[in-house]
Design a binder for these strands. Structure first.
Lengths: 156, 156
DNA sequence: GACGTTATATCGTATTGCGATACATTGGGA
DNA sequence: TCCCAATGTATCGCAATACGATATAACGTC
């Protein structure tokens, strides 16, 4: 009976689009917040990942590249900018002098703290919606390419 | 009893950092997927938001700017690129000829569909982790702005 | 039919991440 | 010890793209 696969697709697209929209909203908030604090987004992210490093890990260039989803040389440049602003320190690890270990300065810490508080609050607001969107996506994903099933369209 | 505010902060930063890391991971996956499909990320996002538009809304430049978190003129340029690739159509609305309405072509639809399936699958995998991170943040957020900042300096 | 408003378009600029490539440090074997 | 491959970081030039400032077009109203 065909069961309107178009409707399934539309539903799926709307769900994905909505999720992305929410992500954008959060990211946009984050960028705005950083900009108000006069701190480029990426610098904020670098600070966050340095400060939020697990206790047993050393925050090296490479580690941060992985965490930020960047190539290492992008992090080199990014960290250079942060250093110029006096937000972080760069020191060669004494054990392996190839490694550069990053460290947030007091100034950087202050900047980061405000932003983190704001972010925590904003996420506290957005979390329910994000979770809802994710749950919806999960329920989509369940029907693993089961072509048939008569999903009744909910929309409109 | 002071209760080691440093530890709280550290915990908070780690939680936020972890959340951002997961977002990056997803965004990175998304960019990769789009690139494999030979489609710039932003073009993919534009297609998604056009295709996933609620039934009662007209996908105009302005609407999409809001959805994508961009300024309208950025969307103008983006949509121009998409049009050049034959992924979308741009037509002036007959009612209000100022408005440009965007529409995904068959070609665009095909490209989008593959990507959407991949994304739905990936999100199905990531959703539990994301939800966990969000839940953790929610539990942080409860303790509303406790001012006392006896941050001990780490820098040398 | 002039005006303020809304919607889209154009241009020049600045940021920034990347590929290619180079340099520095390390550990290990001849 | 010296050489070398592996690993980690740095530099350079480039390309993509989002933005601000500004311009054009269509609308509704008086």
């Amino acid at each position: 009976m065909r069961s309107v696969p178009e409707a399934i697709d539309k539903q799926k697209l709307q769900t994905l689009a909505e999720f992305r929209y929410m992500l954008r909203r959060f990211l946009h908030f984050s960028e705005e917040a950083a900009r108000k604090a006069d701190l480029p987004t990426q610098q904020h992210q670098l600070l966050l990942q340095i400060a939020g490093v697990p206790d047993e890990v050393a925050p090296t260039i490479s580690y941060l590249a992985e965490r930020l989803g960047l190539r290492h040389h992008s992090v080199v440049e990014l960290s250079k900018r942060c250093q110029e602003q006096g937000l972080i320190l760069r020191t060669h690890a004494s054990l392996d002098r190839r490694c550069v270990v990053l460290q947030v300065t007091l100034k950087g810490e202050r900047r980061l703290k405000e932003l983190s508080d704001d972010h925590a609050r904003e996420l506290y607001e957005l979390a329910p919606q994000l979770i809802r969107a994710l749950t919806q996506i999960q329920s989509l994903g369940c029907k693993k390419a089961t072509a048939g099933l008569s999903t009744r369209k909910i929309e409109k």
